[in-house]
Every structure is written in structure tokens, then in C-alpha cells.
Simulated scan of single mutants.
Amino acid sequence: MIVEQNVPLQAHNSFGIVAKARELVRVRSEDDVLAVLADPELAAGPKFVLGGGSNIVLTGDVKCLVLKVEIPGIRVVEDGPRATVIEAGAGENWHDFVTWTLEHGFPGLENLALIPGSVGASPVQNVGAYGVEVQDRFESLDAIHLESGRVFTLNAAECAFDYRDSVFKHSPARTGDLGLAGRAIILRVRFRLPKPWRPVIGYVDLARKRVETGVDEPSPRQVYEWVCAARQHKLPDPRVLGNAGSFFKNPTVTPEQCMDIIAREPNIVHYPMPDGSVKLAAGWLIDACGWKGKSVGNAGVYEKQALVLVNRGGATGGEVVTLARAIQTSVYERFGIRLEPEPVVV
């Protein structure tokens, strides 16, 4: 274990915000975590787990110990007649992992292509796109507790997945509660890819591609390419224009609330949900408030997609947070809806 000092974090957060970690340890195995816990000084202090950095807003230098997860490895755990189970180290790049599964003949994750971040972060956020969420393909994960050093395994039910949510985003309300925010590091994640493979192409962008290409039964690779093309058209590449993807969750309301809004805003984009609630398009709400293309300092709202906040060059975390709060205020004043950010503010 090597403790690095004053490590620049600009390359380790997709917003490209300039900040430093006062101390950083690169976690490439569970032994690195155990070494941290065996050091009396490091074990006692606060810690911040950093994966791919695609879901954070840094508002200054990180003063606590940063545990940078870089655990590698991909392997096929099981390849049976009904499903293939594949395990990936938490430090693997998510898009590269999705690409690997296709290249090796294991489809099922193609709708989640080009989502920035790491494999270990994917269940934390329950990432999803184009009709598929991680929970739909999740088998189990291994994690290590940051107090006891105990390695444990969680299945899907124990992860308490919800819309962009999991047990890893919640702190325990009482002693004995399972909330694991800041209390564990994910080491490995396993995904169950069902057989026979069936394309998930009901999402409007993919349905449009189906019509445009005249391909009624696309291959996994074609779905992958459609998803990549759709994301590249609507979303900026973080390597070119810093961003954290969709900044706000799509809010859900009751049917009565939705009808009330429709009476005032007939064109609002909304989707009925299986539980009877109605999901509203946060990007539409933000755009309706006139924020698309606007900026606060060097932080701005992307011209092609109002749901994405971007770093126009030299933006601070404070500017991003100020812009986000201004958007929240506008949406609440016009629609009576509180938008919830997806990224974690550090």
C-alpha cells in the first residue's frame, strides 16, 4: 500500500473540476483495504470512496483519505443454458466491460453502453438507460466493510435497488440498519445475462432507429451501435466537455398531479409507470424554464439536452452547485416540483 499526497483529481472526475486529494490510496485488491484498516492513523480517519468519478461534484480539495478503486479483472463464472454469469472487478471501466461482453458473445448489457463510470459504481447508482437498469441484469456483488474489514456478498434484494438508488447511497438511520453509504467498498460485481437473448428496443430512440434502418430484429451489436449513436447525439463526451451525464432524476408524481400540470402545460413529456405513478421528463421541465444553453460562471446547461450540466472550461464545483440550485428553484416555482440531483456533492 502506498499513500500518495496531494493527488490532482481533475482527471478522476468527469466534470473535470480542479481539486486535489490530500491523501489517496489506490485500491487494487481487498488486501489494499485491509492494509488501510491495519494502519491506526488511516483507519481512524474519514474516508471517501472514488470510483470512475462520473457521479460527483467536487466543491474543493478532498481532505479525508480517498480510496481510489482500481480493482481489475473480468471472468465468466457460469455459462449455462438459461443464463451467463460474468464477474468484473469494481475498477473496470463500465463501457469497456459492456463492449467486452458483446465481443465475447454474451449480450444483455448493450442498452447500457457508453454510460461513463466504473463497474463498481454501477450498482451504487443502479445505472440505467434505454429501458434497462443494472438491477435487471444483476446477480450479486462482493464488498468489504470499512470498519471491520469483513468481506460480504449482497444479492439484488439486499442491494435495495430503486430508481438511481441503492443501499450504498443511504446511511443507517439506527444502529444495525443496513445503510452502507461511506461504510463499504464494492470489490466485484456479477451480472446474469439471460438466454435466449431478446432485444429491448421499446425506448423511443431505439424504436426510431428500427424504423429508419428497416431492421425489425436487430442483433445485439446493432442495438449497441444504436444506443451509442443516440447517446453521442444527445450527450457530450466527458473527455471533451466535462459533465456528469443526467444531472437530475426524472421526478414522479401522482396521476392527479400530472393532470393538473397538463391542464397548464399540455405539451409536458410524461410516462405512466407500472405502479400507477407518472414519471415526468426533468429535461423538459428545465427546458421549459428557459435554462437550455444558459450559464452561471463557467458552468452551463448543455445546448442539446437540458438535463445535462457541463463544465465550459474552468468551472468550479461551487458554480455547478449554484447553477443546479437555480434550476431547482425555477422548476419548483413554475411546476411545484422539486428536482433531485443525481451526483453526490463532495
Rank of each mutant, 00 (worst) to 15 (best):
V151H: 00
G60C: 02
R28K: 14
V344P: 01
P236Y: 10
W284N: 11
E4M: 09
V227C: 02
N126I: 00
R264S: 15
G131C: 10
G242Y: 09
N267T: 15
D79R: 15
C228T: 14
E30P: 03
P272A: 08
A19L: 11
T322H: 02
S171W: 11
D287R: 09
L9P: 05
Q328F: 07
V151Q: 04
G313D: 10
T316Y: 13
V269N: 12
Q305W: 11
P199D: 03
P194S: 15
I286Y: 00
A21C: 12
W94F: 15
G52F: 01
P236W: 10
I185T: 10
N13T: 08
A43I: 08
E70P: 09
I268N: 02
R239N: 11
L178D: 14
K304R: 15
P266R: 06
N267C: 10
L65N: 07
A326F: 02
S330V: 01
A35Y: 11
K209A: 13
D31M: 13
K209I: 07
R192S: 15
A229E: 15
Q5E: 15
F247W: 13
Y203H: 12
L309F: 05
P72R: 11
L309C: 01
G336D: 03
W291P: 01
L42D: 07
E319S: 14
Q125S: 00
G108F: 07
T84G: 13
T153E: 03
T322D: 10
K249G: 03
N311S: 07
G108I: 10
V119K: 01
S122E: 02
S295M: 02
R231V: 07
G314I: 14
D260G: 12
M1P: 10
Y332C: 02
S14H: 05
A11V: 06
K20I: 01
L154R: 09
V344K: 14
P116F: 12
A143C: 11
R164W: 09
G51S: 04
H233G: 11
F191P: 00
P255H: 10
R82W: 14
D136W: 08
G73I: 08
E139F: 04
R183A: 15
P81N: 13
D162R: 11
Y302E: 05
S29Q: 12
F168R: 02
G73C: 07
A207F: 04
D275K: 01
V200Q: 08
V204F: 14
D216S: 14
I74M: 06
G245E: 08
P251S: 05
Y332R: 13
I144T: 04
K292F: 09
W284S: 12
D31E: 15
P123T: 04
V253S: 02
A157F: 04
V344M: 06
S14T: 15
D136I: 02
C258A: 11
M1E: 14
